[in-house]
Design a binder for these strands. Structure first.
Length: 272
DNA sequence: AGTAAACTCCGGAAGC
DNA sequence: TGCTTCCGGAGTTTAC
């Protein structure tokens, strides 16, 4: 499940490899994986240089020469990889991008197809069917969070809303709320000023920590049972139902919040 | 109006 | 072994 830390790691790696690289051609194996595109996309991509690669929330934004732009969203099961052109195509590889004078090709896999690619130019750019993103969670500031918390809404539901704050998914919501000792079902409008400050700090810290350990840990575990190892290393409540809270040893509980499975320490995160 | 819940997409994984 | 059920990011729809 690529969340902000994974997307950030991917952005760094793609940037190192692909800035200044020129596209040779694009193989679209599933047309509906391309969610929006200008006319004659394939022809327009040919020969275009990659200018910038940025992360915005859980999305990747790739800017190309000639006012072309690509937004990548990985959804639940999306993977983007640089591979040798000859290596076997894994199932659900929907798009391949090959380059001039760069040996590897970029592949997009996504079994569940919750993700996708959006291409824009000056003409379709104004009507993007992508929602506007709130301020980035990795650098969320107290005044912004304070303003968001004026609403009478369950705290976790608010944090999951990408239009309020962008980048937090199910896992890091639980982790940040645990860090701040705030119950996910708390009304945002009931938070005290110290709680807001603490939460802002914990959102940044949780994500930064995941990026820092993810960068090395993810790589160490590639092609092994990697996700498991990383999981146990950095998550304190997520996926730990029944296991002792790392702070107070009380068993972690799993509840439902905003339709998502939610992990909480009933002792550290009192409700009401 | 603002919030919440249900529904949609889909296939992997878990459970029976 | 083979079926059914659950799960979820995010947009849309529906209801309170």
């Amino acid at each position: 499940m690529p969340e902000l830390p994974e997307v950030e790691t991917i952005a760094v790696e793609l940037r190192q490899a692909l800035i200044g690289v020129v596209i040779k051609d694009v193989v679209i194996r599933r047309t509906d994986f391309i969610r929006t595109k200008p006319r004659n996309l394939a022809a327009r991509l040919r020969g275009k240089k990659i200018k910038t690669i940025e992360r915005e929330g859980k999305r990747l934004q790739v800017k190309l020469a000639g006012d072309l732009e690509c937004v990548i969203h990985l959804g639940m099961s999306g993977r983007v990889t640089l591979e040798n052109p000859g290596s076997p195509l894994l199932p659900h590889t929907h798009v391949r991008i090959r380059f001039a004078r760069f040996r590897k090709e970029l592949r997009f896999r996504d079994p569940r197809r919750f993700g996708g690619l959006w291409f824009f130019d000056g003409r379709n750019g104004s009507a993007r069917p992508l929602s506007r993103l709130g301020p980035d969670a990795l650098s969320i500031r107290v005044p912004v969070l304070r303003a968001a918390c004026k609403r009478r809404r369950q705290m976790k539901a608010l944090l999951l809303d990408q239009q309020v704050i962008s980048g937090l998914g199910n896992i890091y919501c639980d982790e940040a709320l645990f860090g701040a000792k705030i119950h996910p079902l708390c009304l945002a409008s009931d938070l005290t000023e110290p709680q807001v400050r603490n939460l802002a700090c914990n959102i940044r810290k949780t994500l930064r920590n995941a990026i820092d350990s993810g960068g090395s840990t993810l790589r160490d575990f590639v092609n092994t049972d990697g996700s498991e190892g990383v999981f146990q290393k950095i998550h304190r409540v997520y996926g730990r139902e029944g296991q002792p809270c790392p702070r107070c040893q009380t068993p972690i509980e799993r509840i439902q919040c905003a339709g998502r499975s939610t992990h909480v320490c009933p002792c550290c995160q009192p409700w009401g």
